[in-house]
């Protein structure tokens, strides 16, 4: 048995993502080392049979070369700082976050490469819901990484009869698309409350993905990525009622609920969506990229625009070629 096949997969974090990743790794008979990276009751971690629980980042990094991060954005920097003390160039780190860091607008792989020495990074995103997977539903996702080795390892280790895992070398495109579809999903929630009907939904889908493609290009990615798993695939699942958190936030916005109420209801996901909308909109403006839907969302979050006014504004845009 080669050294690589004996080595464990490392998982960092808690919650459904952690449970799904642990389950997938076990499906393949892989040894799993879990570092919860925070205070947690053993019962909350679920079924840990066959899982080695690491007390700290050092043990995790010694045992595994591939580390899957099932964390939130607020936790990510401090976890990376602790990992940074122990990782070396042979480690691969893959995150599962769809959005941008509140306050800085950085993507998760930017944080990982800034705070650790790891170069071989990736993003595991797309139309995937760990809860659904754990309920026994089939899922699909995409692993974005510039490094083919990272994609190969993840595809080999996580693909299962219930999970199809696609790969993309366009990491910038994958992270941007995964972030940018969230404001578009919020616009779907808005349209639902305003009862705009199926035609508007169709238009939002087509023009929303086109907008995501422009943003992907502005961030150095390939526009085609917007029409793949991280873009269109992810958006389609988020707007399916009852919808993902972004969709529900859009509904609250349309009902005129305050930002405080939205943040209270959706916590970090709401803060992340607000920041992502702002950051993407600012970048689009800077690069001269048309970003009408994301821009309208950003202005609604800052209180400059009401939901009906946003819709009127979008319909009043000059006629254009597709």
């Amino acid at each position: 048995m080669s050294e690589s096949s004996e080595r464990a997969i490392g998982v960092v974090g808690q919650g459904p993502w952690m449970k799904m990743l642990v389950d997938l790794a076990r499906t393949h008979g892989r040894r799993v080392v879990l570092w919860a990276a925070g205070d947690v009751e053993a019962d909350d971690l679920g079924d840990l049979s066959g899982v080695t629980v690491a007390a700290d980042a050092e043990l995790l990094c010694e045992s595994s070369r591939t580390i899957l991060m099932a964390t939130t954005f607020p936790e990510l920097p401090s976890i990376c700082e602790r990992l940074g003390e122990h990782v070396q160039g042979h480690h691969q780190v893959v995150h599962t976050l769809q959005g941008m860091e509140p306050g800085t607008g950085r993507f998760a792989t930017e944080i990982i490469t800034e705070l650790t020495c790891v170069r071989q990074v990736g993003a595991l995103v797309g139309p995937i819901y760990p809860d659904m997977y754990l309920e026994g539903k089939p899922c699909g996702a995409i692993i974005g990484s510039e490094f083919p080795q990272v994609i190969d390892h993840l595809q080999g280790w996580l693909t299962s009869p219930r999970l199809r895992l696609y790969g993309s070398r366009d990491l910038a495109g994958v992270e941007t698309a995964a972030a940018a579809v969230r404001p578009i999903a919020a616009a779907f929630g808005l349209a639902s409350v305003l009862e705009l009907g199926p035609s508007a939904r169709g238009m939002l889908m087509a023009r929303g993905v086109a907008e995501v493609a422009r943003l992907v290009e502005a961030f150095g990615g390939n526009a085609r990525t917007a029409f793949g798993m991280a873009g269109l695939g992810s958006l389609a699942t988020q707007v399916e009622p009852p919808g993902a958190s972004a969709y529900q936030i859009g509904e609250m916005l349309a009902r005129g609920e305050s930002l405080e109420a939205i943040v209270e209801a959706h916590g970090a996901r709401a803060r992340d969506l607000i920041e992502t909308s702002r950051q993407l909109s600012a970048r689009a403006e800077e690069d001269g990229v048309a970003s009408h839907i994301v821009g309208a969302l950003a202005r609604m979050f800052s209180g400059e625009l009401s939901a009906p006014a946003a819709m009127r504004e979008l319909f009043a845009l000059r006629q254009m070629m597709e």
Partner: peptide, 12 residues
């Protein structure tokens, strides 16, 4: 950082 580790393949 140990530079050589960046050039290490999966089989070590």
């Amino acid at each position: 950082v140990r530079l050589e580790t960046f050039f290490e393949g999966p089989d070590g």
